[in-house]
Design a protein around this nucleic acid. Sequence first.
DNA 1: CAGCAGGGGGCGC
DNA 2: CGCCCCCTGCTGT
Length: 483
Amino acid sequence: MMASDGMLSLSWNNHKATFCHILSTLREKERYTDVTLACEGKFYPVHKLVLSTCSEYFEKMFEHTPCKHPVVVLKDIKCADMEALLSYMYDGVVSVLQQDLARLIKAAELLQIKGLAVPDEPPLKELSKKNAYPWSSRDDRSSPHPKRRRREDMMTSTSQGSSLPPPESPPSSPQHHQESNQSWDHSKSHSQDQREDGVDQRVGDPVEPAVEFSSPKQEASHNQEPVDESLVKEEVIEGSEDNQGEGMDSRIEYGGMGGGDSNTGGEEQGSKFPHQLDTKHPQPLHEAVVEALAGPSGMQGWLGTGELGGGFSMLEGYSEDGNQEVHPASTGPHGTQQSHQMVEAYSDGSRNIGRGAGSKVELEQGGTRFTRGAASNKVHHCPFCSHFTARKDHLRKHIRRHTGEKPYSCAHCSYRSATKYCLTEHMRVHTGEKPFACPLCPYRASHSSTLKYHLSKHENDNMAVSRNYELVRTKLQEANVWT
DNA sequence: CAGCAGGGGGCGC
DNA sequence: CGCCCCCTGCTGT
């Protein structure tokens, strides 16, 4: 405690430690959390404040995200890394195996975590006194040299993943990140309308280095896109689809976890999805989303917007009892590849339009109620698209489509499916089983639709036969042969 | 033909 | 209410 000019300076000796401890406790108790990070099907309720403090990237994101509780889907960031980074952000320290370091740093770079990936700039006051590049003069354990890390990281990525092409891109520097933010802001302005329409904002693929989201032009070029096909899909949508047509046809596959026919790492992940529990925040993504977003009041709010025709636009600002919102908002503008994404505007595919939202709206407006939903009169909304259903379990299943969760894997090939029945159907490919037998001929089909199509041909044949029969009968009658 | 997605019914908790 | 099974219809190849 110092005194000068009668002014007392009260110093809380344990302030930092206490502060950090309380923050961590709050996180553990999920108290005051106002943003949810989702990766690999897990949910991490955290605090914007903390994320913003530790990452300029998050800061920018939240700055342009008006909703109260956005859900940020982090693609292709391993949950282990996410947990480590959260530990780092909340506690200022994290233990990591040496072998995992590169991956962790990479994730940190994508998220622009201060001290890990970007320079941990000291507060302004100190800035003038201290070196502009803290790592050069400080022994701060949390501020490794970004450059060095990047190099190391790139080396690992090229050596580890054969699928990853050598980065043609310049290493991401703090300045580079800064540019990315600017471009983000810039492009945000012209994509704001779409963003507002969308439910989710998608963050770029973290697997891709910062280059990926550094400049708008790269969105189109797909440069150095490795194997993650989900990224391709996403970019296609982001780039053009949403702009064209009412955005109704754009479609985004979610998650690096199951997105494609991931025969890669997806297998293990997917297989443990159903009951995958996180040590700290064990909540499957879809379930959490359902619980957070789907609810009784959603329908009214939704329909109330009168924007159903716009597909997802009604999802903007959608909030379930004020709990959570999946908001389009500001993150990656279309095409500006961000290091991860808040869920991006997902307008449903044509299928869903025709069979999902649209048809249901009719039902609802027509006063029809769903059998099972009628009891509680609840309508459950998909937080990612305009789909809604009266049955929560159906919504859960539907959400898998967005999360990419495919828990059922074929034992004979890399096929994975979101439903057991789909897997069962698929297994017929291997077994040759054809359970659907035609009652009129020896034909058998492996798929009911196929049999139906087949039967329709019988129908035509019968009609032809019938017509012939009539013709023959007429002729015979004319000939007085018919009795 | 294979795959996907939405929806309905049955059943147990 | 949640899970499971199944049907149905559509799409892409």
